[in-house]
Design a binder for these strands. Structure first.
Length: 580
DNA sequence: ACCTTAAGCGCG
DNA sequence: AAAGCGCGCTTAAGGT
Protein backbone atom coordinates (compact mmCIF):
# COMPACT_ATOMS: atom_id res chain seq x y z
CA UNK A 1 0.00 0.00 0.00
CA UNK A 2 1.35 3.38 -0.91
CA UNK A 3 1.82 5.87 1.85
CA UNK A 4 -0.07 9.12 2.11
CA UNK A 5 -3.63 10.20 2.73
CA UNK A 6 -6.42 7.91 1.69
CA UNK A 7 -8.71 8.65 -1.19
CA UNK A 8 -12.44 8.14 -0.74
CA UNK A 9 -12.98 5.40 -3.33
CA UNK A 10 -11.20 2.09 -3.71
CA UNK A 11 -11.70 0.35 -7.04
CA UNK A 12 -11.35 -3.44 -6.98
CA UNK A 13 -10.85 -5.72 -9.95
CA UNK A 14 -9.09 -8.80 -11.22
CA UNK A 15 -5.67 -8.79 -12.83
CA UNK A 16 -5.46 -12.37 -14.05
CA UNK A 17 -3.52 -15.29 -12.60
CA UNK A 18 -5.60 -15.14 -9.46
CA UNK A 19 -4.49 -11.67 -8.53
CA UNK A 20 -6.65 -8.77 -7.45
CA UNK A 21 -5.81 -5.11 -7.88
CA UNK A 22 -6.96 -2.24 -5.67
CA UNK A 23 -6.69 1.39 -6.74
CA UNK A 24 -7.58 4.36 -4.57
CA UNK A 25 -9.27 7.18 -6.46
CA UNK A 26 -10.33 10.66 -5.38
CA UNK A 27 -12.94 13.14 -6.50
CA UNK A 28 -10.72 14.65 -9.19
CA UNK A 29 -10.08 11.22 -10.67
CA UNK A 30 -6.50 11.09 -9.36
CA UNK A 31 -5.35 7.55 -8.65
CA UNK A 32 -2.77 5.88 -6.45
CA UNK A 33 -0.62 3.06 -7.73
CA UNK A 34 -2.45 -0.27 -7.74
CA UNK A 35 -1.97 -2.60 -4.83
CA UNK A 36 -1.76 -6.16 -6.08
CA UNK A 37 -2.62 -9.20 -4.00
CA UNK A 38 -3.51 -12.84 -4.33
CA UNK A 39 -7.27 -13.29 -4.43
CA UNK A 40 -7.08 -15.23 -1.20
CA UNK A 41 -5.79 -12.14 0.63
CA UNK A 42 -8.59 -9.82 -0.44
CA UNK A 43 -10.87 -10.44 2.54
CA UNK A 44 -8.14 -9.59 5.03
CA UNK A 45 -7.23 -6.45 3.09
CA UNK A 46 -10.83 -5.29 2.91
CA UNK A 47 -11.26 -5.89 6.62
CA UNK A 48 -8.15 -3.84 7.36
CA UNK A 49 -9.26 -0.94 5.21
CA UNK A 50 -12.75 -1.00 6.73
CA UNK A 51 -11.16 -0.62 10.15
CA UNK A 52 -8.74 2.04 8.96
CA UNK A 53 -10.57 4.48 6.67
CA UNK A 54 -13.64 2.66 5.31
CA UNK A 55 -13.46 3.69 1.66
CA UNK A 56 -16.39 3.31 -0.68
CA UNK A 57 -15.55 0.07 -2.47
CA UNK A 58 -16.08 0.21 -6.22
CA UNK A 59 -16.62 -3.14 -7.87
CA UNK A 60 -18.21 -4.66 -10.93
CA UNK A 61 -21.09 -6.43 -9.27
CA UNK A 62 -21.90 -6.83 -5.60
CA UNK A 63 -23.45 -10.24 -6.24
CA UNK A 64 -20.06 -11.39 -7.59
CA UNK A 65 -17.75 -9.91 -4.95
CA UNK A 66 -19.58 -9.56 -1.69
CA UNK A 67 -20.78 -13.10 -0.87
CA UNK A 68 -17.20 -14.36 -0.54
CA UNK A 69 -16.41 -11.51 1.84
CA UNK A 70 -19.50 -12.27 3.89
CA UNK A 71 -18.47 -15.92 4.02
CA UNK A 72 -15.13 -14.77 5.35
CA UNK A 73 -16.95 -12.84 8.08
CA UNK A 74 -16.43 -9.38 6.57
CA UNK A 75 -19.10 -6.71 6.19
CA UNK A 76 -18.43 -3.44 4.40
CA UNK A 77 -19.97 -0.03 4.90
CA UNK A 78 -20.43 1.37 1.41
CA UNK A 79 -19.91 0.45 -2.21
CA UNK A 80 -20.49 1.46 -5.80
CA UNK A 81 -22.11 -1.37 -7.74
CA UNK A 82 -20.97 -0.61 -11.28
CA UNK A 83 -23.51 -2.94 -12.88
CA UNK A 84 -26.52 -1.41 -11.15
CA UNK A 85 -25.27 2.16 -11.50
CA UNK A 86 -24.60 1.61 -15.20
CA UNK A 87 -28.16 0.42 -15.71
CA UNK A 88 -29.60 3.53 -14.05
CA UNK A 89 -27.31 6.00 -15.82
CA UNK A 90 -27.69 4.42 -19.25
CA UNK A 91 -31.39 5.23 -19.45
CA UNK A 92 -31.78 8.13 -17.05
CA UNK A 93 -33.26 11.16 -18.76
CA UNK A 94 -31.58 13.50 -16.31
CA UNK A 95 -28.12 12.51 -17.56
CA UNK A 96 -27.15 15.06 -20.19
CA UNK A 97 -24.07 13.31 -21.57
CA UNK A 98 -24.82 9.58 -21.55
CA UNK A 99 -23.05 8.65 -24.79
CA UNK A 100 -19.66 7.38 -23.58
CA UNK A 101 -21.43 5.31 -20.96
CA UNK A 102 -23.97 3.94 -23.41
CA UNK A 103 -21.16 2.92 -25.73
CA UNK A 104 -19.78 0.59 -23.05
CA UNK A 105 -22.19 -2.20 -23.97
CA UNK A 106 -20.29 -4.86 -22.04
CA UNK A 107 -21.92 -3.42 -18.92
CA UNK A 108 -25.47 -3.94 -20.16
CA UNK A 109 -26.77 -6.98 -18.36
CA UNK A 110 -30.41 -7.47 -17.60
CA UNK A 111 -31.08 -8.55 -14.02
CA UNK A 112 -32.99 -11.71 -14.97
CA UNK A 113 -29.75 -13.19 -16.24
CA UNK A 114 -28.20 -12.69 -12.87
CA UNK A 115 -31.06 -14.09 -10.86
CA UNK A 116 -30.59 -17.70 -11.82
CA UNK A 117 -27.98 -19.05 -9.49
CA UNK A 118 -27.18 -18.18 -5.91
CA UNK A 119 -23.64 -17.07 -5.32
CA UNK A 120 -21.34 -17.39 -2.37
CA UNK A 121 -20.78 -21.12 -2.27
CA UNK A 122 -17.86 -20.68 0.05
CA UNK A 123 -15.14 -20.56 -2.56
CA UNK A 124 -13.26 -17.32 -2.46
CA UNK A 125 -13.18 -16.18 -6.09
CA UNK A 126 -12.92 -19.07 -8.46
CA UNK A 127 -9.46 -19.06 -9.97
CA UNK A 128 -10.09 -21.28 -12.94
CA UNK A 129 -10.90 -18.42 -15.26
CA UNK A 130 -14.41 -19.69 -15.83
CA UNK A 131 -15.82 -16.25 -15.20
CA UNK A 132 -16.82 -14.13 -18.18
CA UNK A 133 -20.02 -15.79 -19.30
CA UNK A 134 -21.92 -13.44 -21.59
CA UNK A 135 -24.43 -12.74 -18.84
CA UNK A 136 -22.00 -11.10 -16.45
CA UNK A 137 -20.27 -7.75 -16.47
CA UNK A 138 -16.49 -7.35 -16.80
CA UNK A 139 -14.61 -7.92 -13.55
CA UNK A 140 -11.14 -6.72 -14.52
CA UNK A 141 -9.46 -3.83 -12.73
CA UNK A 142 -8.85 -1.73 -15.84
CA UNK A 143 -12.44 -2.18 -17.00
CA UNK A 144 -13.72 -1.18 -13.57
CA UNK A 145 -11.54 1.94 -13.50
CA UNK A 146 -12.66 2.97 -16.96
CA UNK A 147 -16.32 2.36 -16.23
CA UNK A 148 -16.08 4.22 -12.93
CA UNK A 149 -14.71 7.24 -14.79
CA UNK A 150 -17.50 7.08 -17.34
CA UNK A 151 -20.10 6.82 -14.63
CA UNK A 152 -18.80 9.77 -12.69
CA UNK A 153 -18.73 11.91 -15.80
CA UNK A 154 -22.26 10.87 -16.70
CA UNK A 155 -23.57 11.45 -13.18
CA UNK A 156 -21.94 14.88 -12.96
CA UNK A 157 -23.61 15.88 -16.22
CA UNK A 158 -27.01 15.43 -14.64
CA UNK A 159 -29.40 18.31 -14.32
CA UNK A 160 -29.56 17.76 -10.55
CA UNK A 161 -26.52 15.64 -9.69
CA UNK A 162 -27.40 15.58 -6.00
CA UNK A 163 -30.59 13.62 -6.44
CA UNK A 164 -29.07 11.23 -8.92
CA UNK A 165 -26.10 10.62 -6.62
CA UNK A 166 -28.58 9.75 -3.90
CA UNK A 167 -30.19 7.17 -6.16
CA UNK A 168 -26.85 5.65 -7.14
CA UNK A 169 -25.78 5.38 -3.51
CA UNK A 170 -29.12 3.89 -2.48
CA UNK A 171 -29.03 1.43 -5.33
CA UNK A 172 -25.54 0.29 -4.34
CA UNK A 173 -26.48 0.05 -0.67
CA UNK A 174 -29.43 -2.07 -1.71
CA UNK A 175 -27.06 -4.50 -3.38
CA UNK A 176 -25.19 -4.85 -0.09
CA UNK A 177 -28.45 -5.39 1.78
CA UNK A 178 -29.55 -8.05 -0.70
CA UNK A 179 -26.33 -10.01 -0.26
CA UNK A 180 -26.50 -9.65 3.51
CA UNK A 181 -30.14 -10.78 3.60
CA UNK A 182 -29.13 -13.91 1.75
CA UNK A 183 -26.20 -14.54 4.06
CA UNK A 184 -28.28 -13.96 7.19
CA UNK A 185 -31.34 -15.80 5.95
CA UNK A 186 -34.85 -15.60 7.35
CA UNK A 187 -35.21 -17.47 10.64
CA UNK A 188 -37.75 -20.08 9.60
CA UNK A 189 -39.44 -22.49 11.98
CA UNK A 190 -40.00 -25.64 9.93
CA UNK A 191 -41.98 -27.26 12.75
CA UNK A 192 -44.39 -24.33 12.88
CA UNK A 193 -44.69 -24.39 9.09
CA UNK A 194 -45.48 -28.12 9.28
CA UNK A 195 -48.07 -27.48 11.98
CA UNK A 196 -49.80 -24.84 9.84
CA UNK A 197 -49.79 -27.20 6.87
CA UNK A 198 -51.28 -30.05 8.89
CA UNK A 199 -53.90 -27.72 10.32
CA UNK A 200 -54.99 -26.68 6.82
CA UNK A 201 -54.41 -29.84 4.78
CA UNK A 202 -54.30 -32.74 7.20
CA UNK A 203 -51.32 -35.01 7.84
CA UNK A 204 -48.48 -35.04 5.35
CA UNK A 205 -49.41 -37.69 2.77
CA UNK A 206 -46.94 -40.24 1.44
CA UNK A 207 -45.88 -40.76 -2.15
CA UNK A 208 -47.96 -38.43 -4.26
CA UNK A 209 -51.17 -38.88 -2.27
CA UNK A 210 -53.56 -35.95 -1.99
CA UNK A 211 -53.82 -34.56 1.56
CA UNK A 212 -57.11 -35.57 3.24
CA UNK A 213 -58.67 -32.15 3.59
CA UNK A 214 -57.95 -31.44 -0.06
CA UNK A 215 -59.41 -34.79 -1.07
CA UNK A 216 -62.55 -34.04 0.97
CA UNK A 217 -63.02 -30.67 -0.71
CA UNK A 218 -62.50 -32.28 -4.11
CA UNK A 219 -65.03 -35.03 -3.42
CA UNK A 220 -67.59 -32.50 -2.24
CA UNK A 221 -67.06 -30.44 -5.38
CA UNK A 222 -67.40 -33.45 -7.68
CA UNK A 223 -70.59 -34.48 -5.90
CA UNK A 224 -72.09 -31.04 -6.29
CA UNK A 225 -71.16 -30.99 -9.98
CA UNK A 226 -72.36 -34.57 -10.41
CA UNK A 227 -69.10 -35.64 -12.06
CA UNK A 228 -67.24 -38.31 -10.10
CA UNK A 229 -64.07 -38.30 -12.23
CA UNK A 230 -63.58 -34.59 -12.85
CA UNK A 231 -60.04 -33.24 -12.54
CA UNK A 232 -60.19 -29.95 -10.67
CA UNK A 233 -56.64 -29.12 -11.70
CA UNK A 234 -57.46 -28.60 -15.35
CA UNK A 235 -59.09 -25.20 -15.87
CA UNK A 236 -60.65 -26.04 -19.28
CA UNK A 237 -62.23 -29.26 -18.01
CA UNK A 238 -63.33 -27.64 -14.78
CA UNK A 239 -64.86 -24.76 -16.71
CA UNK A 240 -66.88 -27.15 -18.89
CA UNK A 241 -68.11 -29.01 -15.81
CA UNK A 242 -69.15 -25.76 -14.13
CA UNK A 243 -71.12 -24.65 -17.17
CA UNK A 244 -72.76 -28.10 -17.45
CA UNK A 245 -73.92 -27.63 -13.87
CA UNK A 246 -75.50 -24.33 -14.83
CA UNK A 247 -72.88 -22.01 -13.35
CA UNK A 248 -72.44 -19.30 -15.95
CA UNK A 249 -68.78 -18.33 -15.67
CA UNK A 250 -66.23 -17.38 -18.32
CA UNK A 251 -63.24 -18.56 -16.30
CA UNK A 252 -62.50 -20.57 -13.19
CA UNK A 253 -60.98 -17.66 -11.27
CA UNK A 254 -61.90 -17.14 -7.68
CA UNK A 255 -63.41 -13.67 -8.08
CA UNK A 256 -65.79 -14.91 -10.75
CA UNK A 257 -66.83 -18.02 -8.87
CA UNK A 258 -67.54 -16.00 -5.74
CA UNK A 259 -70.26 -14.14 -7.60
CA UNK A 260 -72.30 -17.32 -8.02
CA UNK A 261 -74.61 -19.27 -5.75
CA UNK A 262 -74.14 -23.04 -6.06
CA UNK A 263 -73.27 -25.93 -3.71
CA UNK A 264 -70.09 -26.59 -5.70
CA UNK A 265 -68.64 -23.13 -5.21
CA UNK A 266 -67.64 -23.24 -1.55
CA UNK A 267 -65.81 -26.61 -1.65
CA UNK A 268 -64.17 -25.67 -4.96
CA UNK A 269 -62.80 -22.44 -3.57
CA UNK A 270 -61.59 -24.37 -0.53
CA UNK A 271 -59.91 -26.89 -2.82
CA UNK A 272 -58.19 -24.21 -4.87
CA UNK A 273 -56.90 -22.50 -1.76
CA UNK A 274 -55.49 -25.73 -0.33
CA UNK A 275 -54.10 -26.83 -3.65
CA UNK A 276 -52.28 -23.55 -4.01
CA UNK A 277 -50.84 -23.79 -0.51
CA UNK A 278 -49.62 -27.33 -1.13
CA UNK A 279 -48.13 -26.59 -4.54
CA UNK A 280 -46.42 -23.32 -3.68
CA UNK A 281 -45.40 -23.72 -0.03
CA UNK A 282 -46.12 -27.31 0.93
CA UNK A 283 -43.84 -29.83 2.61
CA UNK A 284 -41.55 -30.08 -0.37
CA UNK A 285 -40.93 -26.34 -0.04
CA UNK A 286 -39.65 -26.85 3.48
CA UNK A 287 -37.42 -29.70 2.31
CA UNK A 288 -36.09 -27.66 -0.57
CA UNK A 289 -35.65 -24.24 1.00
CA UNK A 290 -35.26 -24.47 4.76
CA UNK A 291 -31.91 -25.61 6.08
CA UNK A 292 -30.62 -25.22 9.62
CA UNK A 293 -33.52 -23.00 10.55
CA UNK A 294 -32.96 -20.50 7.76
CA UNK A 295 -34.67 -19.74 4.46
CA UNK A 296 -32.24 -18.02 2.12
CA UNK A 297 -33.88 -16.51 -0.94
CA UNK A 298 -31.82 -14.74 -3.59
CA UNK A 299 -32.88 -11.13 -3.78
CA UNK A 300 -32.49 -9.35 -7.11
CA UNK A 301 -32.09 -5.59 -6.57
CA UNK A 302 -33.66 -3.54 -9.37
CA UNK A 303 -35.04 -6.77 -10.80
CA UNK A 304 -38.22 -4.86 -11.67
CA UNK A 305 -38.21 -2.01 -14.24
CA UNK A 306 -39.49 0.41 -11.64
CA UNK A 307 -36.49 -0.29 -9.44
CA UNK A 308 -38.31 -2.59 -7.09
CA UNK A 309 -36.55 -5.74 -6.09
CA UNK A 310 -37.38 -9.14 -7.48
CA UNK A 311 -36.43 -12.43 -5.92
CA UNK A 312 -35.45 -15.80 -7.16
CA UNK A 313 -35.90 -19.09 -5.45
CA UNK A 314 -38.72 -20.12 -3.21
CA UNK A 315 -40.92 -17.13 -3.96
CA UNK A 316 -39.60 -14.99 -1.13
CA UNK A 317 -41.73 -12.00 -2.02
CA UNK A 318 -44.91 -14.09 -2.21
CA UNK A 319 -44.84 -15.97 1.08
CA UNK A 320 -48.55 -16.22 1.95
CA UNK A 321 -49.56 -14.27 5.03
CA UNK A 322 -50.98 -17.54 6.29
CA UNK A 323 -47.42 -18.82 6.77
CA UNK A 324 -45.95 -15.67 8.28
CA UNK A 325 -46.02 -17.19 11.79
CA UNK A 326 -43.38 -19.68 10.62
CA UNK A 327 -41.03 -16.72 10.39
CA UNK A 328 -39.93 -17.06 13.97
CA UNK A 329 -37.04 -15.65 15.98
CA UNK A 330 -34.38 -17.91 17.43
CA UNK A 331 -34.71 -18.58 21.18
CA UNK A 332 -33.94 -15.45 23.16
CA UNK A 333 -34.33 -13.31 20.06
CA UNK A 334 -37.25 -11.31 18.69
CA UNK A 335 -38.56 -10.14 15.36
CA UNK A 336 -39.16 -6.45 14.87
CA UNK A 337 -41.58 -6.02 11.94
CA UNK A 338 -42.38 -2.68 10.37
CA UNK A 339 -44.34 -1.63 7.35
CA UNK A 340 -45.09 1.80 6.01
CA UNK A 341 -48.70 2.84 6.07
CA UNK A 342 -49.78 3.77 2.50
CA UNK A 343 -46.29 4.35 1.17
CA UNK A 344 -47.20 5.04 -2.45
CA UNK A 345 -49.83 7.75 -1.94
CA UNK A 346 -47.56 9.43 0.60
CA UNK A 347 -44.70 9.38 -1.89
CA UNK A 348 -47.01 10.88 -4.47
CA UNK A 349 -48.08 13.62 -2.09
CA UNK A 350 -44.45 14.46 -1.36
CA UNK A 351 -43.37 14.42 -5.02
CA UNK A 352 -46.25 16.60 -6.07
CA UNK A 353 -45.99 18.90 -3.06
CA UNK A 354 -49.71 18.34 -2.58
CA UNK A 355 -50.46 20.09 0.69
CA UNK A 356 -54.01 18.75 0.94
CA UNK A 357 -52.87 15.16 0.51
CA UNK A 358 -50.02 15.67 2.96
CA UNK A 359 -52.53 16.98 5.48
CA UNK A 360 -54.81 13.99 4.91
CA UNK A 361 -51.93 11.69 5.77
CA UNK A 362 -50.82 13.60 8.83
CA UNK A 363 -52.90 11.51 11.25
CA UNK A 364 -51.36 8.09 10.53
CA UNK A 365 -54.12 6.68 8.32
CA UNK A 366 -54.15 8.52 5.01
CA UNK A 367 -57.38 6.88 3.88
CA UNK A 368 -59.19 8.00 7.02
CA UNK A 369 -57.77 11.45 6.40
CA UNK A 370 -59.24 11.45 2.91
CA UNK A 371 -62.66 10.52 4.31
CA UNK A 372 -62.36 13.52 6.66
CA UNK A 373 -61.98 15.89 3.71
CA UNK A 374 -65.49 14.80 2.76
CA UNK A 375 -64.52 13.73 -0.74
CA UNK A 376 -65.66 10.13 -0.12
CA UNK A 377 -67.88 8.44 2.45
CA UNK A 378 -65.86 5.46 3.64
CA UNK A 379 -62.30 4.33 4.13
CA UNK A 380 -62.82 1.57 1.56
CA UNK A 381 -63.94 4.13 -1.01
CA UNK A 382 -60.89 6.25 -0.24
CA UNK A 383 -58.59 3.29 -0.77
CA UNK A 384 -60.27 2.22 -4.00
CA UNK A 385 -60.14 5.78 -5.30
CA UNK A 386 -56.47 6.23 -4.47
CA UNK A 387 -55.48 2.89 -5.99
CA UNK A 388 -57.49 3.83 -9.07
CA UNK A 389 -55.57 7.07 -9.30
CA UNK A 390 -52.22 5.32 -9.01
CA UNK A 391 -53.06 2.51 -11.44
CA UNK A 392 -55.24 4.41 -13.89
CA UNK A 393 -58.48 2.51 -13.56
CA UNK A 394 -61.11 3.12 -16.21
CA UNK A 395 -64.14 1.25 -14.95
CA UNK A 396 -66.16 0.52 -11.84
CA UNK A 397 -66.34 2.35 -8.52
CA UNK A 398 -62.73 3.32 -8.72
CA UNK A 399 -63.06 5.21 -12.01
CA UNK A 400 -66.17 6.89 -10.65
CA UNK A 401 -64.32 8.13 -7.54
CA UNK A 402 -61.10 9.31 -9.15
CA UNK A 403 -62.55 12.58 -10.54
CA UNK A 404 -63.43 13.60 -6.98
CA UNK A 405 -59.81 13.13 -5.97
CA UNK A 406 -58.86 15.33 -8.88
CA UNK A 407 -60.80 18.22 -7.32
CA UNK A 408 -59.52 17.69 -3.80
CA UNK A 409 -55.90 16.81 -4.58
CA UNK A 410 -55.19 18.66 -7.83
CA UNK A 411 -51.40 18.70 -7.51
CA UNK A 412 -51.05 14.98 -6.86
CA UNK A 413 -53.48 14.06 -9.60
CA UNK A 414 -51.80 16.40 -12.08
CA UNK A 415 -48.52 14.56 -11.53
CA UNK A 416 -49.88 11.09 -12.31
CA UNK A 417 -52.16 12.31 -15.09
CA UNK A 418 -49.21 14.02 -16.73
CA UNK A 419 -47.11 10.83 -16.44
CA UNK A 420 -49.91 8.92 -18.18
CA UNK A 421 -50.11 11.48 -21.00
CA UNK A 422 -46.38 11.22 -21.61
CA UNK A 423 -46.53 7.44 -21.70
CA UNK A 424 -49.47 7.33 -24.09
CA UNK A 425 -47.51 9.17 -26.77
CA UNK A 426 -44.43 7.00 -26.33
CA UNK A 427 -42.52 9.32 -24.02
CA UNK A 428 -40.29 8.55 -21.08
CA UNK A 429 -41.03 9.37 -17.45
CA UNK A 430 -38.59 9.62 -14.57
CA UNK A 431 -38.79 8.98 -10.84
CA UNK A 432 -38.05 11.60 -8.21
CA UNK A 433 -34.38 10.60 -7.96
CA UNK A 434 -33.82 9.96 -11.66
CA UNK A 435 -34.68 6.44 -12.76
CA UNK A 436 -36.31 6.57 -16.19
CA UNK A 437 -38.89 4.27 -17.70
CA UNK A 438 -37.81 2.12 -20.63
CA UNK A 439 -38.74 3.30 -24.13
CA UNK A 440 -41.72 1.63 -25.80
CA UNK A 441 -40.84 -1.53 -27.63
CA UNK A 442 -40.57 -1.30 -31.43
CA UNK A 443 -43.82 -3.20 -31.96
CA UNK A 444 -45.73 -0.66 -29.89
CA UNK A 445 -44.29 2.28 -31.84
CA UNK A 446 -44.93 0.62 -35.18
CA UNK A 447 -48.55 -0.02 -34.24
CA UNK A 448 -49.02 3.61 -33.22
CA UNK A 449 -47.49 4.87 -36.45
CA UNK A 450 -49.49 2.63 -38.75
CA UNK A 451 -52.74 3.36 -36.90
CA UNK A 452 -52.31 7.01 -37.84
CA UNK A 453 -51.98 6.32 -41.53
CA UNK A 454 -55.06 7.21 -43.58
CA UNK A 455 -55.77 3.63 -44.65
CA UNK A 456 -55.65 2.19 -41.12
CA UNK A 457 -58.58 -0.05 -40.24
CA UNK A 458 -60.87 0.75 -37.34
CA UNK A 459 -59.75 -2.38 -35.55
CA UNK A 460 -56.13 -1.32 -35.97
CA UNK A 461 -56.89 2.12 -34.60
CA UNK A 462 -58.74 0.72 -31.62
CA UNK A 463 -55.89 -1.67 -30.87
CA UNK A 464 -53.43 1.20 -31.01
CA UNK A 465 -55.52 3.32 -28.66
CA UNK A 466 -55.76 0.43 -26.20
CA UNK A 467 -52.01 -0.08 -26.36
CA UNK A 468 -51.43 3.64 -25.85
CA UNK A 469 -53.73 3.73 -22.80
CA UNK A 470 -52.03 0.65 -21.43
CA UNK A 471 -48.64 2.26 -21.69
CA UNK A 472 -50.08 5.37 -20.07
CA UNK A 473 -51.15 3.30 -17.07
CA UNK A 474 -47.65 1.87 -16.89
CA UNK A 475 -45.90 5.26 -16.88
CA UNK A 476 -48.53 6.69 -14.51
CA UNK A 477 -47.68 3.98 -12.02
CA UNK A 478 -43.95 3.98 -12.79
CA UNK A 479 -43.25 7.39 -11.28
CA UNK A 480 -44.97 6.48 -8.02
CA UNK A 481 -43.93 2.84 -7.66
CA UNK A 482 -40.37 3.75 -8.69
CA UNK A 483 -40.09 6.64 -6.23
CA UNK A 484 -41.57 4.47 -3.48
CA UNK A 485 -38.84 1.93 -4.24
CA UNK A 486 -36.27 4.71 -3.89
CA UNK A 487 -37.70 5.69 -0.53
CA UNK A 488 -37.55 2.08 0.62
CA UNK A 489 -33.92 1.75 -0.51
CA UNK A 490 -32.99 4.89 1.38
CA UNK A 491 -34.81 3.51 4.43
CA UNK A 492 -32.93 0.21 4.34
CA UNK A 493 -29.59 1.78 3.54
CA UNK A 494 -29.85 3.97 6.61
CA UNK A 495 -31.23 1.19 8.81
CA UNK A 496 -28.48 -1.20 7.78
CA UNK A 497 -25.77 1.18 8.97
CA UNK A 498 -27.59 1.89 12.23
CA UNK A 499 -27.91 -1.83 13.00
CA UNK A 500 -24.28 -2.44 12.12
CA UNK A 501 -23.29 -0.06 14.94
CA UNK A 502 -25.02 -2.20 17.60
CA UNK A 503 -22.75 -3.92 20.10
CA UNK A 504 -22.55 -7.68 19.55
CA UNK A 505 -24.10 -9.62 22.42
CA UNK A 506 -22.21 -12.15 24.49
CA UNK A 507 -21.55 -15.55 22.98
CA UNK A 508 -24.11 -17.25 25.23
CA UNK A 509 -26.77 -14.94 23.77
CA UNK A 510 -25.89 -15.86 20.19
CA UNK A 511 -28.49 -17.04 17.71
CA UNK A 512 -27.93 -19.89 15.34
CA UNK A 513 -24.79 -19.28 13.28
CA UNK A 514 -25.69 -17.15 10.29
CA UNK A 515 -23.71 -14.71 8.22
CA UNK A 516 -20.90 -12.44 9.41
CA UNK A 517 -21.80 -11.67 12.99
CA UNK A 518 -25.53 -11.80 12.40
CA UNK A 519 -25.79 -14.37 15.18
CA UNK A 520 -24.59 -11.75 17.63
CA UNK A 521 -26.44 -8.55 16.74
CA UNK A 522 -29.65 -7.22 15.26
CA UNK A 523 -29.80 -7.62 11.48
CA UNK A 524 -32.23 -7.30 8.60
CA UNK A 525 -33.99 -10.60 7.94
CA UNK A 526 -36.66 -9.72 5.39
CA UNK A 527 -37.63 -6.97 2.98
CA UNK A 528 -40.78 -6.67 0.91
CA UNK A 529 -41.27 -3.37 -0.96
CA UNK A 530 -42.54 -1.33 2.00
CA UNK A 531 -41.85 -3.67 4.88
CA UNK A 532 -38.80 -4.82 6.84
CA UNK A 533 -38.26 -7.45 9.50
CA UNK A 534 -35.27 -7.25 11.82
CA UNK A 535 -34.06 -10.28 13.79
CA UNK A 536 -32.68 -9.01 17.08
CA UNK A 537 -31.45 -10.32 20.42
CA UNK A 538 -34.33 -9.65 22.84
CA UNK A 539 -32.38 -6.93 24.64
CA UNK A 540 -31.78 -5.11 21.32
CA UNK A 541 -35.36 -5.26 20.07
CA UNK A 542 -36.40 -1.85 21.39
CA UNK A 543 -33.27 -0.24 20.01
CA UNK A 544 -33.89 -1.94 16.68
CA UNK A 545 -37.42 -0.55 16.62
CA UNK A 546 -36.06 2.91 17.33
CA UNK A 547 -33.54 2.48 14.53
CA UNK A 548 -36.27 1.46 12.09
CA UNK A 549 -38.30 4.55 12.96
CA UNK A 550 -35.29 6.84 12.78
CA UNK A 551 -34.29 5.40 9.41
CA UNK A 552 -37.78 5.98 8.00
CA UNK A 553 -37.66 9.54 9.21
CA UNK A 554 -34.22 10.01 7.69
CA UNK A 555 -35.32 8.54 4.36
CA UNK A 556 -38.23 10.98 4.17
CA UNK A 557 -36.02 13.96 4.88
CA UNK A 558 -33.32 12.77 2.50
CA UNK A 559 -35.65 12.37 -0.48
CA UNK A 560 -38.06 15.20 0.27
CA UNK A 561 -36.26 17.88 2.27
CA UNK A 562 -38.74 20.36 3.70
CA UNK A 563 -41.78 18.27 2.84
CA UNK A 564 -44.55 18.01 5.41
CA UNK A 565 -45.37 14.47 4.33
CA UNK A 566 -44.50 11.90 6.96
CA UNK A 567 -44.07 8.15 6.70
CA UNK A 568 -45.62 6.47 9.74
CA UNK A 569 -44.89 2.82 10.42
CA UNK A 570 -46.91 -0.06 11.80
CA UNK A 571 -44.42 -1.67 14.14
CA UNK A 572 -44.57 -4.93 16.06
CA UNK A 573 -42.12 -6.74 18.30
CA UNK A 574 -42.85 -10.43 18.75
CA UNK A 575 -41.34 -13.88 18.58
CA UNK A 576 -42.93 -14.43 15.21
CA UNK A 577 -44.06 -12.38 12.25
CA UNK A 578 -47.66 -12.28 11.17
CA UNK A 579 -50.70 -10.61 12.58
CA UNK A 580 -50.64 -10.27 16.34
C1' DA B 1 -39.71 -35.88 -25.39
C1' DC B 2 -38.88 -31.07 -25.04
C1' DC B 3 -39.84 -26.03 -24.75
C1' DT B 4 -43.03 -22.17 -24.50
C1' DT B 5 -47.38 -19.99 -23.20
C1' DA B 6 -51.45 -19.03 -20.48
C1' DA B 7 -54.21 -19.42 -16.44
C1' DG B 8 -54.46 -18.80 -11.86
C1' DC B 9 -53.07 -17.01 -7.42
C1' DG B 10 -49.64 -15.51 -3.98
C1' DC B 11 -47.25 -10.76 -2.58
C1' DG B 12 -46.81 -5.32 -2.50
C1' DA C 1 -68.36 -6.07 -5.97
C1' DA C 2 -63.82 -7.00 -8.15
C1' DA C 3 -60.96 -3.19 -12.01
C1' DG C 4 -56.49 -0.31 -12.81
C1' DC C 5 -49.84 -1.18 -11.67
C1' DG C 6 -45.54 -4.28 -10.74
C1' DC C 7 -43.78 -9.13 -9.92
C1' DG C 8 -42.63 -15.20 -9.23
C1' DC C 9 -44.08 -19.71 -9.30
C1' DT C 10 -46.68 -24.08 -10.50
C1' DT C 11 -49.47 -26.53 -13.46
C1' DA C 12 -51.72 -27.90 -17.71
C1' DA C 13 -52.06 -27.25 -22.48
C1' DG C 14 -50.30 -26.33 -26.93
C1' DG C 15 -46.67 -26.26 -30.29
C1' DT C 16 -42.61 -28.40 -32.31
Amino acid sequence: MTAGSRRPWCVVGRLGEGRIGLVDVDGSGARDEPVVLPAADLAARVAAREAEDAPRWVWSDTAEWYPALLDAGIRIGRCVDLRLVHAVLRTSQVVREPEPLRAAAAWDVSPEHLAAEPRGDGTLFSLDGSAGSPTSVPDGLEEALAEFDRQRAAAESAAEPGRLRLLLAAESAGALVAAELHAAGMPWDAAEHDRLLREALGPRPHGGQVPVKMAEAAAETRDALDDRTLSLDSPPRLLRALRRAGIDVASTSRWELEAHEHPAIAPLLRYKKLSRLLAANGWWWIDEWVHDGRYRPVYVPAGVVTGRWASSGGGALQIPRQLRPALRADPGWLLVSADVAQLEPRVLAAMAGDAAMAAAGAATDLYAGIVETGVVETRTEAKVAVLGALYGSTTGDSARLVPRLRRTFPDAMRLVDRAAEVGEVGGTVTTWLGRSSPPPDPGWSAAQTSAHLPDASTAEQERAVRAARSRGRFTRNFVVQGTAAEWALAWMADLRLRLARFEPVAAERAARASGPGFDRQAHLAFFLHDEVIVHAPAEQADAAATAILAAADAAGRLLFPGSTVDFPLDLHIAEHAGKA
